[in-house]
């Protein structure tokens, strides 16, 4: 029986370590540095980097402005991407519903106020980070567990039919931009 040669762990780490860093500027002018492996988790950012032709040499001199994401959310996103940059790619899902366990570190990261979580999910959607999207959605989906309809209405900010009608009426009664 042949035994496969063991690869020393240190070599694997050396290969993994990538010196290429990119700068991202949030909508409120905070600057973040993110590694190449981490930024690849965002399809939007990676497409942008590729289209702009940024390389290891000029990456830090050309910060990428992201108008739709504020500093607070960008910080969370950078933390998340750096944490998961070496995660193995998940196989294609055959089922529509995905089964996964939300790791404790990520649950802690996403234990934030609902308003922040809402903004984070919008930012995640814009930056197209699939894994973070999955995790955010799991957290939001889990809020429905063990709740009465009235609690669901409050948690998810769902107006009643009467409130919806009133909103619609007031929207149609209010003068338009020209009027």
């Amino acid at each position: 029986m042949s035994v496969e040669p063991e690869v020393p762990i240190v070599q694997v780490e050396e290969v993994r370590e990538n010196p290429v860093l990119y700068k991202i500027i949030s909508s409120d002018n905070h600057v973040f540095t993110i590694s190449e492996h981490a930024v690849k988790l965002s399809k939007t950012l990676w497409d942008l980097i590729t289209n702009l032709g940024l390389t290891a040499e000029n990456a830090l001199d050309n910060p990428i402005p992201v108008e739709n994401v504020n500093g607070k959310n960008m910080e969370t996103i950078v933390q998340f991407c750096e944490r998961h940059k070496y995660d193995e790619e998940e196989p294609e899902y055959t089922n529509y519903i995905r089964e996964f366990v939300l790791p404790e570190w990520d649950r802690q990261l996403l234990s934030i106020d609902n308003e922040e979580l809402f903004q984070l999910i919008l930012a995640t959607n814009y930056l197209d980070i699939q894994k973070l999207m999955d995790y955010c959605c799991r957290v939001i989906g889990d809020m429905a567990k063990d709740k009465t309809p009235e609690e669901l209405r409050i948690i998810y900010g769902i107006p009643t039919d009467a409130e919806d009608d009133a909103l619609e009426r007031s929207a149609s009664d209010s003068p338009g931009p020209s009027g």
């Binding site: 609902n114 809402f118 959607n125 959605c137 939001i140 989906g141 429905a144």
Partner: peptide, 23 residues
Amino acid sequence: KKKTPLPLFRLPALPLREIFSVM
């Protein structure tokens, strides 16, 4: 802990679909 509501139906369709897929 979480007093502010999360306005579910103001989310874009993609995350909304993901959320309902875990429910």
